[in-house]
């Protein structure tokens, strides 16, 4: 596997917030390049003038009325929280935003 592609894998893993071990990275690079090789087949077709499909059916968007319904009780909001403090979710320091 080329160093370039390993670096690419590292970049994508960072974007996706996935920590990968070095073995995982190697394996991932191999598998990803094989999968992307197959995926590149879509580029063989001429799609000039073809609209992309984001939704298979075009039905009018449903719009909700601006009405309030009861929210979840706060115990339920926090019931799965890994770390909480008072009625907040607690997270570690956020000073580091971008690693790159």
């Amino acid at each position: 596997m080329s160093d370039d592609f390993i670096r690419e894998v590292e970049h994508v893993a960072r974007l996706a917030r996935l920590s990968l071990s070095s073995e995982e990275k190697e394996l991932m690079a191999d598998q990803l390049s094989a999968i992307l090789e197959t995926a590149r087949k879509v580029r063989e077709i001429d799609t000039v003038g073809i609209e992309p499909t984001a939704h298979v059916f075009s039905i009018p968007a449903f719009l909700r009325e601006d009405v309030i319904y009861p929210s979840l009780p706060v115990e339920k909001v926090l019931q799965n929280a890994p770390k909480k403090m008072k009625s907040y979710f607690r997270v570690p320091s956020i000073t580091v935003i971008e690693e790159e």
Binding site: R64, D66, V67, Y69, S71
Partner: peptide, 20 residues
Amino acid sequence: RSKLFCSCSTAFGREPNTSC
């Protein structure tokens, strides 16, 4: 009165995580 994609209240100054 309610949020953009759900029916929780938008009222300002509510107790934390009670409008979820």
